[in-house]
Amino acid sequence: MSLVRRVLDSSALYRLIALAIFGTVWQLATLSHKSMLIPTFTDTMAAIPKLLIPGYSGDESAKLWDALYQSNGALLIGFAISVALGVPFGLLIGRFRTIERFANLYISILLVTPMAAVIPLLVMSLGVRDGAMPTRVILIVLFAIVMLVVNSRAGIRQIDPSLIEMARCFGAGELSIWRRILLPGSLPAIMTGVRLGLGRAITGMVIIELLFIAVGLGNLIQRYDAQLDGPRLYALIIIVVFEALLLIQFVRWVERRVTPWRKTPSFGR
């Protein structure tokens, strides 16, 4: 394939064009309607390196990196706990109906409750001292875990029952069935759960910091907002979105690596 064809075929090119159109429209709109609260596209872009590169503009970047460290610490721990608890739990209720009957109500509650309504209660009972790391971790778990549970359960459910029957037929016990059929069979759905759960965890992280516990990125967003610092506010939000995209892309990459059989070419290609 020629280089031109490859560039034309790559989705990166289309993403770039879409971004360029978005930037242009943004720029034109803000130039024609001057507003204090909405910065121009170029001002926002100029603010990004100021925030990111240490020493480029005073101690701005130190604040950002500190906030990133604080927020991501809670995210990392909370998300790890969500995976470590949610996946095994989801797999178990997928396999054993009795356990599921006990758990179903709570899963439904987690799925439908608007988290923003419950957060104040939890914040009150869990405390907000010293950056409230444990509180933030627990809240992130509450945001993310339901995705991991529900998808892991679906992963077990969608396994072809004839595969389990086959394994039993060839003498597999429950342990072998888990190791050779249920775990590999549910891995694609587990990875989907990891991806969706990560998205929820990031959303949760920002919401908590923004509305209830003013630390980390949320705190920084609030401060720029209060200072009416449009360019920095927008730049910061773009950085947060970009980080989320990077994390999600990473999970996608892992997903492709661990479940190569999902995208096998059809025979003869």
Binding site: S162, M166, R180, P184
Partner: peptide, 12 residues
Amino acid sequence: AMVFQSFALMPW
């Protein structure tokens, strides 16, 4: 030993 209509092969 059994042979299944749906083949029942492990895709992974």
